[in-house]
Structure formats: structure tokens, C-alpha cells
Design a protein around this nucleic acid. Structure first.
Ligand SMILES: [Mn+2]
Ligand SMILES: [Mn+2]
Ligand SMILES: [Zn+2]
Ligand SMILES: [Zn+2]
Lengths: 136, 136
DNA sequence: TCCTACGATGGACTTCGTCCAAGTCAAGAA
DNA sequence: TTCTTGACTTGGACGAAGTCCATCGTAGGA
């Protein structure tokens, strides 16, 4: 994910080993880790990285739009590096596992003006819930 | 909401004053309260009701499908008594306010088999995010 | 190489929620 | 009506997730 690192550098971020490791951990498809999972994996590469730094870095990545926060019901937030391609989620009610699924239309356009109550609607989050094969 | 109380009675629930008050607090349209808000309002009518009982009762109402949990990003869960009519949410990113909106025949649960990854899909949660007129 | 502002650290703290042992009471039985 | 009993409630301890902050360390420009 040196692409991401490049973009961070061009935003004036210092490329610390901690940020590098967090970026590496977030690489891949169907990645939706909790902050603690990110910390665990980051610590495997850089043992002394702190929880606070992981939270700080994730928060910054979210703020600049490189990572999305996925909302959950009563579980820890999950962080999604797949922010460039719009997609939806399939979430297991048993174990919390998440898969990416891809929309067949413009979901935003599905909300007619008459249902917007004067809101400036900017995004839509769609989550399918069910049980994964392992939990069923 | 004596309808709800009737249904609870027919399920064998004891109709305690605490449960009555929680049910009363949840009555109305566009109601999406946090557990603490429910406790606050319930305590206005029944001062000694405990937080534990509010959590217990909300959990039971959710378990039997009378109330829905609305997921939020990093904020407290919200409880939605409008479980009988399927609907979606319009949430203000500024103040957290939630309005109910109703789908216009968009393919709600129509996640194609090829995108289900073997999951047993049971429901879908759709949340539009934006700024309400007051926050815009 | 040196400087220093930006970033990392760990531990205290907050918020949201769960758990539990002990006390209370709704509602059926007699 | 009173009795009985197990379902319900309670307060407080506990836990998980996340924030804050004083202090220390270092990336990267001069
Ligand atoms: Mn995703
Ligand atoms: Mn609702
Ligand atoms: Zn599962
Ligand atoms: Zn608002």
C-alpha cells in the first residue's frame, strides 16, 4: 500500500514506522478490522506500538477519507480501507465478520426528494445482516 | 401503547410498573432513543427505576422483535419502537437526529445469490446520512 | 549534525453496557 | 383474601471500547 503512503506524504504526514505499519495492516480485500485487531497485527511487526497511536492514525485516515468507519450494533467499530470503490456490507450477526458486496444501482438516488425532509443527503450505508456459513 | 402491553402479557411477561413505563416512553413516531434517554424519561415517571432494568427490558423487547436496535457510528445504540413497519433512516451527521423514511419499491432485500457468500441473509439496514436543515 | 514541531507513548479517565447476589412483588393457588 | 414462589428489580462492581493528556522521542528540513 505504498500508494496510500505516497498520498499521506503529499499531505504532509510524517512517515513514521507506526503509520507505515498501520497502513500495511490495512492492505487487502474484505478488510474490516476493529481498532484492537489493527493494534494486534501492527504489534506483531512493531511490538512497541501503542493503542493510542493506532486510534490516532485510524481517526486521521478516516478524517481524510482514506478509510471508512463501519457502524455495528453493540460491537467495536470496524475500519475499512476500501474507501475508493463504493460498496455495501454483508455482516454476520453471529461472529461479526463482514464481506463486501457491490450495489446494482445508485442507492442514493433511491431516496426521493419528497422523503428528504430538507436534508442535504451525502451518503448511504447499506448493511445486509445474516449468518455466515460457519455460524449457521 | 397498551397494544404492546397486551402482547407482552400474552407472552407471559409480568406487567411490572417498570416495564409499563418503558413501554410508555417508547410510544410515538420517529422515536429513536438511547438507553440512557429511555432511563431518563422513565425515571421522570418512576423515579427509582434502575438502569439495569431499562437495559434488561430493552434487550427483551429487541429479542422478541418489538423494538429494533439502530446502529450508530461510535455513539450509543438507539432503540426504535417502530418495528412493525419496515423503514429506513435519515440521520443528521451534525446533531444525530434521526427521521424515518420509507422505501419506494427499491429492491430492499434483493441481494443476488451470487453476492451472498453462503450467508443466510435475514434483514437489511439502510441509513442515509447528511445534514438536517438546522445543521446545514 | 542539529533543532524542533509533530507524533508516539502509557496510563488515567469516560462512556456504554453487562453481570450478579440479594431483596421485592405480580399473579396464580387455595 | 392471604399465601407462595419464581420472575423481576436493584445498586454496584465489573468490563469493553474509546478518549485525553503530560511527557518523551524522532522525522525531516535547515
Ligand atoms: Mn467494506
Ligand atoms: Mn425508525
Ligand atoms: Zn459468523
Ligand atoms: Zn442536525
Amino acid at each position: 500500500m505504498s500508494d496510500l503512503l505516497q498520498r499521506l506524504r503529499s499531505r504532509g504526514w510524517r512517515l513514521t514506522s507506526q503509520r507505515r505499519v498501520v497502513a500495511e495492516v490495512l492492505d487487502g480485500d474484505h478488510v474490516h478490522l476493529t481498532a484492537d485487531e489493527v493494534h494486534l497485527r501492527a504489534a506483531a511487526r512493531l511490538p512497541e506500538i501503542s493503542r493510542a497511536t493506532v486510534y490516532n492514525t485510524l481517526g486521521e485516515l478516516v478524517a481524510i477519507g482514506e478509510v471508512l468507519e463501519v457502524s455495528t450494533v453493540g460491537r467495536a467499530k470496524r475500519y475499512d480501507p476500501n474507501a475508493r470503490r463504493p460498496h455495501q456490507h454483508l455482516m454476520c450477526s453471529g461472529c461479526g465478520m463482514i464481506r463486501d458486496v457491490h450495489p446494482v444501482g445508485n442507492a442514493l438516488g433511491d431516496l426521493p426528494e419528497s422523503e428528504r425532509f430538507g436534508f442535504a443527503v451525502g451518503s448511504v450505508e447499506i448493511t445486509y445482516r445474516g449468518l455466515c456459513p460457519a455460524c449457521a
